[in-house]
Design a protein around this nucleic acid. Structure first.
Lengths: 160, 160
DNA sequence: GAAAAGTAGTTGAAAGTTCAACGTTTTCCA
DNA sequence: TGGAAAACGTTGAACTTTCAACTACTTTTC
């Protein structure tokens, strides 16, 4: 992307700037707040996401790489994180019989208890800190905007 | 926030869920993409933000704590980061004459060159990856939504 | 005007994340 | 069928971020 802007840059006008900055700033603070709310359950957002995904999976287990994809973590990051979560007793690892390279992350009873305890509070956080400020129409507009953003990122992924 | 939900949790309905997840997923990918685009200039988003804020400040210098606030970094994080940026030659530190506890972060000529080189590409990234997918009306709606979200976070800050 | 309380900023250690390299197993295809 | 290439997941090292403690200075309070 470097050096592709020989022409005069199209700087943001005030309205664009406001939309962009408000979005980016609110999003950071929102994430912080959700993370902080989850601390009451000794969970980070990433941990929550991992457990939530596992709890939706058949038999509450999932291949490491699939879990990494749906939880949007790098494989390496997931691998390190699962090591910690395993120590905490929320998940364990299980060799995959079909593919000897592979492993499953399996949610334990303790992990299930943790997510069941955390989920209502987390959903309530998402509501009070975010969804409550959106009308039905806002929800629709937002869904569409971010669908377009995601689609465009897929078409034009960053080159790393 | 823990234990405040003795009542049945108000789970998200499908429309709410879709709005929430699309927003959160697109936002993560968007941030990743912007960060990745900036790598061409050897800058992280945090570094960019620090340099951008400095370049707008009078004399291109700012007190550490003010800089931490506007760039949304903890003081400790800024302190560590400035150490690295100083080594890279983009900023230097300067003792504050009025308050002997204080320091200024001061942008160097090299820092100025770095931000001037990166800004057009970065703005272009923000456009192509985000703003281009928003109509004027979308911009307005988004500004208002995230203003409400920010206001509510101010009224009800996380307790850490 | 001195002690207490608060503010500015840094530090080192602990925890988390990225990156590149690696061993193992599977897939591809000539 | 055999060997190259790709995929799975882990690892250790480097780097980043957080956390709590700390020094140094300033402001408040009585």
């Amino acid at each position: 992307m470097a050096g592709q802007n020989a022409t005069t840059p199209r700087w943001l006008n005030p309205v664009e700037m406001k939309a962009w900055r408000r979005y980016i700033i609110a999003s950071r603070r929102l994430l912080e707040a959700l993370d902080s709310d989850l601390e009451d359950h000794e969970l980070s957002m990433a941990d929550y996401e991992v457990l939530a995904q596992l709890s939706d999976a058949p038999e509450r287990k999932m291949r490491m790489s699939e879990l990494a994809d749906v939880a949007m973590l790098s494989r390496s990051r997931l691998s390190h994180r699962i090591k910690v979560m395993e120590k905490a007793g929320w998940v364990k690892r299980e060799a995959c019989p079909d593919d000897k390279r592979g492993y499953f992350a399996v949610m334990t009873a303790k992990g299930w208890k943790a997510i069941v305890a955390a989920a209502p509070d987390h959903v309530e956080s998402v509501r009070t800190r975010f969804l409550d400020h959106l009308s039905k129409e806002d929800q629709r507009v937002l869904s569409e905007i971010f669908e377009r953003v995601t689609d465009s990122l897929k078409e034009n992924p960053p080159t790393e």
